[in-house]
């Protein structure tokens, strides 16, 4: 490894961000520990990293307006693109189902309504009554859910992940972790966590896990998967039955 390659491949930033593999890391260390120029560069970027760890969020909060605006614009652009894609695919599915020579199908919901069907309000969380002695997983869950109740879903996730590691059978932990992942755009992992909630078997979160998984699958345009989850909810006759029936009717 030489100075030119280090500069060209942005090795210093990758090194400090922990994005080099072991061999690259060792190669870079062997170089910079005997190269004053690279060590200076490393020290400069290290000082910046330290300050960003310490005050980065404060700096971003202070004046992040332009890029936030950009992000919001991008989010809208993405939503519009997703809506467009859903409509195109929906139209294609509808056209195929209807197809020439086939008998006219029943009333079809416009595919754009799937977007509305896939949306959901964060499920209500009612904190359990405090017990005398809480284990560590419960403490983490409680701390995380305080963020959830404040609408800070991204900040809830690390707590619930840590709680899930400690309590592999905690259905509530997995359910709300799945929900938070969906709410922060990590749809595939959210679906997986809701699936994990379901695979734990009977729990207070079983029906809701099926229901919200159906919505997430619909967001990913997995209509068959969504239908299968909704049928399960219907078969159980829960509070969510009516909403599940309405959704099924619209995506049929």
């Amino acid at each position: 490894m030489d100075c030119k390659r280090i500069e060209h491949e942005e090795v210093v930033e990758k090194y400090l961000a922990g994005r080099l593999d072991r061999a690259e890391r060792e190669e870079f260390e062997a170089h910079y520990l005997s190269c004053a120029k690279c060590q200076e560069e490393l020290e400069l970027v290290r000082a910046i990293q330290e300050k960003l760890w310490e005050k980065g969020e404060e700096l971003i909060e202070e004046t992040a307006q332009p890029s936030r605006t950009l992000r919001v614009r991008k989010a809208w652009a993405f939503a519009a693109a997703a809506a467009g894609l859903l409509m195109i695919i929906g139209a294609a599915v509808w056209w195929q189902a209807k197809g020439p020579g086939r008998p006219p199908a029943g009333p079809q919901a416009p595919p754009s309504s799937w977007i509305a069907l896939a949306r959901f309000e964060p499920p209500l969380f009612i904190p359990p009554a405090l017990r005398d002695e809480e284990d560590e997983a419960s403490q983490l869950f409680r701390s995380g859910m305080a963020y959830y109740q404040a609408g800070r879903y991204g900040e809830t996730i690390p707590y619930l992940r840590a709680a899930a590691r400690l309590d592999p059978n905690g259905a509530g932990i997995r359910f709300f972790l799945g929900i938070c992942l969906l709410l922060t755009g990590e749809t595939a992992e959210g679906i997986e966590k809701l699936g994990a909630t379901i695979s734990l078997g009977d729990s207070a979160y079983l029906e809701e896990a099926h229901f919200y998984r159906a919505k997430a699958l619909l967001a990913q345009m997995d209509v068959d998967g969504a239908k299968s989850e909704l049928r399960w909810v219907l078969s159980e006759g829960s509070d969510l039955k009516e909403e599940a029936a309405r959704m099924l009717a619209l995506i049929r």
Binding site: E13, L16, A17, V45, I48, Q49, K51, L52, W53, K55, G56, E57, L59, I60, E62, T63, A64, Q65, P66, S67, L70
Partner: peptide
């Protein structure tokens, strides 16, 4: 860092922090 443009600051933050 404060003197940088906000978007550049955010890029550095996301890269290094």
């Amino acid at each position: 860092l404060r003197e940088l443009k906000p978007a550049d600051r955010e890029i550095l933050f996301l890269t290094l922090a």
